[in-house]
Design a protein around this nucleic acid. Sequence first.
DNA 1: TTTGAAAAACTTATTAC
DNA 2: GTAATAAGTTTTTCAAA
Lengths: 173, 173
Amino acid sequence: MSLDALDVRILRSIAMKETTSPEQIYQETDIPKSTVHYRIENMKKQGVIKNGLFEIDLQKAGLGLTVISEVLAEFSEGYQKKVGKALSEIEGVTDVHFTMGDTDFIVISRLPSRAMVEKLIEEFEAIDGIQRTSSKFVITSYKGDESVGVFRDYSEQTILRSHGLDETGDAPE
Amino acid sequence: MSLDALDVRILRSIAMKETTSPEQIYQETDIPKSTVHYRIENMKKQGVIKNGLFEIDLQKAGLGLTVISEVLAEFSEGYQKKVGKALSEIEGVTDVHFTMGDTDFIVISRLPSRAMVEKLIEEFEAIDGIQRTSSKFVITSYKGDESVGVFRDYSEQTILRSHGLDETGDAPE
DNA sequence: TTTGAAAAACTTATTAC
DNA sequence: GTAATAAGTTTTTCAAA
């Protein structure tokens, strides 16, 4: 199953406006209620949308690659908050935990493809105060592999590309 | 803000039946629709429930302690799946990722209190094939500190106790 | 705070384009 | 895939306890 531009716009709207109401999704996206309804039912059938709370299956939504990173930052007054926020804003990052001990941050990211990992690491290292990062790939997630809010964490473009589509929703030539 | 027995039953029902519909919650819990509605509105006002998709604020729900554990397991045929499942079933565990590299599993748990950490580690180490674990506390989560499904991961008892209540929902003598 | 019943709002199905 | 409408359900409100 592959999502198209309409699906992605609907899923993003669900995540951004935090609603599942066809009426509200219509107001946000201008996609007619009846179409919204039709698409959502389809995505349910195909397992992309998992329940009445509209949890998203990350695999099926094209975000099947999970990366766990340890991020070491240098100490300076108030650095923790600044770095924490900067990490949170990187596309694909879904969890940022500041921990006790020598590692500082544990960051979890969901990406469409291996190609985006390099970009992710670069963005980590571009943050002022970050000293060192160490990332590992997740092979299988036995728990915690769905999410309600992920679509907040990506541009429409990124998701479309992960399904082999350009911004219009057509396959690029 | 503190949840009571009714709130907890409603939140669990939302997580288990995967719905936010007052009608369905009523069928599961026997709490009248209008009461369900009243309680949900209250929890929204207080920030326990965060949006139309009913994401739960873990802090406010009494699950504010996050623990990240590395779990090293010994290799044997098919051990990965067995251990992954066993880890997933431990109360409080919300994420289990099997990774490339020497660490094997990264496990994330949400707990009501420090008192439950010891129990958690014991349960890890009781699993057949687990060699070594290393856990750290999360001090602040800059992202990823809400969840739709958490209430699936606890018994009603555990949540009630974390709010200083016994199984009837009354404060114990 | 709880509740049952009434009113209001919304979703879903249907039809035609 | 869209649009409009009608039918069916559901949520939400409300006044009383």
